[in-house]
Nucleic acid binder design. Structure first.
Lengths: 155, 155
DNA sequence: AGTGAAACGAACCCTTG
DNA sequence: CAAGGGTTCGTTTCACT
């Protein structure tokens, strides 16, 4: 977990290729960035040890898994103190519908990305798992029509 | 791209393990779900062909890549018609700061997840790349204090 | 559709430039 | 820090159940 990491052009190339497909083999990767496979493996391991590479996520089709309705819930928690906030975070992460949770600045403190089985499931989630909690002051629901991933993240 | 996919308990186990670490080797995966490696490989390939598995993302530390400031931008586009919306989407995705873009229901039509080098970079992004555009009626900026990933997505 | 063995290819380690 | 070569390990194929 080195804090200051120096990244040369080869490292950046590696990160670019792996962000495109995290399952690229070391051999392919080495050829793509123009170094020997042994060197390339070393670079990737260093990036892992340095904490630049945190892991690799599987991208799945939520609709094909029976969750065709995705939404963002904006949640205002009041009063906004740790003894109330921490259990709220735990409860949100325990829901099978939760894909991601963000703590934000602004009046609506939390943003929750959820994937629901149906409108009824989403309604149950909002009413029973969010607004029913005493620390939750307000919930806004916005459906996701479509989403796009950005390009590779680089300095 | 079969539309209706039947997923048995082994498939669900596979998806659970791979969502935890998409780089799990086929041998490990087979042992974890209790089938032979050859069978396991077949299952994973089927899940790919069926479009359940879409790909695998590299999780990187944005701060270590020189982008320590993450934020959500809520953007209202007006008037909300395709000839204006499509170029807007292209422009957002062309920004190196963009991590993800969502088209939502509600008055603020778009939500943009961005990672900026600094407050000045974020300000430039908002002023020059968003509010400067004629189709952008309003931008709200909310910094991300902290974020959490949800558990594996399953039916 | 699942298995086990056998052939192939990649990853890893260590030594050298 | 990069490269080459040898060993180890994993992946992939295939005949069989």
């Amino acid at each position: 977990m080195t804090l200051n990491v120096r990244l040369d052009p080869v490292d950046l190339d590696i990160l670019r290729v792996l962000q495109n497909d995290a399952r690229t083999s070391n051999k392919e990767l080495a050829a793509a960035v123009g170094v020997a496979p042994s060197t390339c493996l070393d670079r990737v391991n260093r990036l892992r040890e340095a904490g630049v590479i945190l892991g690799q996520d599987l991208r799945v089709d939520a609709a094909k898994l029976g969750r065709p309705l995705e939404a963002f819930l904006s949640v205002r928690v009041q009063p906004h103190r740790r003894p109330l906030v921490d259990p709220f975070v735990e409860h949100v992460l325990a829901q099978p519908e939760t894909r991601a949770l963000y703590h934000l600045t602004g009046p609506d403190d939390f943003l929750v990305h959820v994937a629901a089985r149906s409108a009824a499931d989403l309604q149950r989630l909002v009413l029973d798992e969010f607004t029913a909690r005493t620390e939750v002051a307000l919930v806004h629901t916005n459906l996701i029509f479509q989403h796009w991933r950005g390009g590779p993240l680089l300095p």
